[in-house]
Simulated scan of single mutants.
Amino acid sequence: MPDLWIYVHVGINSVVFVLAVVAVAIAVVNMHSMGVPWEGHMKEMHHVAGLSLLMIVSFQAANGFLRPPREFVDGVPSPTDGGVGFGVGGVPTLRSRMDAFAFRPTLRGLWRLVHKSTGLLVFGLGAYQVRGGLGLYAGRYGAPDYGDAFVWYVCWLVGVVGFAKFWTVWSRRKSEPNFSE
């Protein structure tokens, strides 16, 4: 049975896909009523990035359904496809967990590389898109530009997630029987 995280991952990505479609639809409908009448579609980098983001998010959502099946060796999930390898007594080993993050020349490994890279691209382009939108709004309507605060928030968020990942790996490694400090 799949872990809970995959359901959370699919749920969040489904919401992101729907919000991206809604955001682009709202932008296209309201494009001519936003300030300068001669300004049309795709005149700002923000517009091009938004359309690109919609296409990449659509690819990522479809790519999630195209995942190749897991590879098994002797009935055990292979570390080459992201499964957990097993050591003495059936206990998952850290080395096999770390191998799950390495690229393997298999179809599943290639899929994982593309899926993770595209996910990071979506995160980065989304952060750029929000920053650009805040800047355009501030410039058009004379509002304060909170773009820098948003960039700091994104940096803080990346730092928290990075620290949590480091802490998880470190505490797992520390709990191994042959760990020496």
Rank of each mutant, 00 (worst) to 15 (best):
157 L>Y: 13
125 L>S: 04
138 A>V: 08
101 F>L: 14
178 N>L: 15
176 E>S: 14
99 D>S: 13
178 N>S: 14
139 G>A: 11
137 Y>M: 07
128 Y>M: 09
107 L>W: 05
127 A>Q: 06
143 A>R: 10
105 P>A: 13
96 S>T: 09
156 W>I: 13
132 G>E: 14
143 A>F: 06
110 L>G: 05
91 V>H: 01
139 G>E: 11
132 G>N: 10
113 L>E: 00
132 G>T: 12
144 P>T: 00
174 K>R: 11
167 W>C: 10
128 Y>I: 03
123 F>I: 13
141 Y>W: 13
108 R>L: 12
157 L>T: 15
139 G>H: 13
145 D>F: 07
178 N>Y: 13
145 D>M: 03
88 V>S: 08
105 P>K: 08
165 K>F: 14
168 T>D: 12
97 R>S: 07
156 W>V: 14
113 L>C: 04
156 W>G: 15
90 G>C: 12
103 F>H: 08
152 W>G: 11
171 S>R: 13
140 R>F: 09
144 P>G: 00
168 T>C: 13
119 G>H: 00
83 G>D: 05
101 F>W: 13
103 F>W: 12
133 G>Y: 00
111 W>T: 00
98 M>F: 08
115 H>S: 05
92 P>K: 02
103 F>M: 07
114 V>P: 05
117 S>E: 09
141 Y>V: 09
145 D>Y: 06
170 W>H: 12
112 R>M: 02
134 L>P: 00
151 V>P: 03
107 L>P: 04
117 S>W: 09
103 F>D: 05
139 G>L: 09
107 L>E: 06
164 A>E: 03
122 V>Q: 04
103 F>K: 02
124 G>Y: 01
157 L>H: 14
135 G>K: 07
137 Y>G: 04
166 F>L: 06
93 T>A: 07
166 F>Y: 09
83 G>E: 02
97 R>L: 15
178 N>C: 12
94 L>C: 10
157 L>V: 15
149 A>I: 15
150 F>C: 01
93 T>W: 05
135 G>A: 10
97 R>C: 09
